[in-house]
Design a protein around this nucleic acid. Structure first.
Lengths: 155, 155
DNA sequence: AATAATAATGAAAACCATTATCAATAACAG
DNA sequence: CTGTTATTGATAATGGTTTTCATTATTATT
């Protein structure tokens, strides 16, 4: 993906423009970090990574951009209960794709899992349909987390 | 439930004692509020309600007690993304029982639903068994939330 | 191009829910 | 009762996130 030193891919420009926003360098840089990194990054994590390449970009902008991206549906914001929000690209090249989480209440470790059972997806769809209809609620996303004690913490 | 002006129900005493804790008046008062109120209360909500009856009880104690109750598994702590944690009795008289949430990203409204629980529970158990085995992870709880736009916000 | 209008940025200050501190008090065991 | 330990509450501190506001970059218009 060799579009960081240009104006970025045209579709991205369009996506921003369509929402009345501008695709600026800081925003590209932040998206780039999200693309390159897999994991659950905090705002500061992202800031530090961006900062290495563009020291001029400040933490405030990172927060603002992330909020924007979340609002645009490009980024998903998680809360694992450790006092800081985590951000993840909701789709895209390096995104593992949709996944759910195992959260260790002992050490805070997060395990992603994507090996859904077919039934799981089936039921989710079914549930979404049912809920949408009953509550007239337009579902755009879901969050599924299992809490417990991880292997290491059991010892 | 006429036990607030006494020492509380004996089983509660036992439950606390068993964990090495004491069932004090502030703790009873906080539990009482959680019992009487249905909904997703923030620490301050609880503090204000408790404060009406026992003005001496401070916000700090509310936070501390909630943390204790969460740790004891009597209370579940939620995060709906509005910057403050929400607490709910995980079982008990006024608790609706286990339920999942619809979170409106427009206005922040929370809808509880219990409709599809039966089928979900079935699959959840299955999924939990699978995950527990694969990751050697002892699952104690889960969180399921659907995000979207509620009826009012669609207009 | 030049310029006006508007959106985006960054540094610093403000915010605000939550936690830590610490001396005073309450609960329990013997 | 008395000593020991847990609990409490007021206050201060913490720390992630937002606001503020003057400056700068981007887009639309002439």
């Amino acid at each position: 993906m060799p579009w960081l030193n240009g104006t970025g891919p045209p579709w991205l420009h369009g996506k921003f423009k369509g929402c009345g926003y501008r695709l600026t360098l800081p925003r590209q840089a932040i998206l780039d970090v999200l693309n390159k990194t897999t994991g659950h990054l905090s705002a500061e994590d992202i800031y530090l990574k961006v900062h290495k390449i563009y020291p001029a970009i400040g933490l405030t902008t990172v927060y603002r951009t992330l909020e924007l991206l979340v609002q645009m549906g490009m980024v998903f914001k998680f809360d694992f209960g450790d006092g800081r929000a985590r951000y993840e690209l909701s789709e895209g090249p390096k995104s593992i794709g949709h996944h759910h989480h195992l959260v260790c209440t002992g050490c805070g470790r997060i395990i992603d899992y994507t090996d859904f059972i077919d039934e799981e997806i089936e039921l989710l769809k079914k549930t979404e349909r049912g809920l949408s209809k009953k509550y007239n609620f337009k579902i755009t996303n879901h969050l599924i987390q299992f809490y417990g004690i991880c292997e290491k913490c059991q010892k």
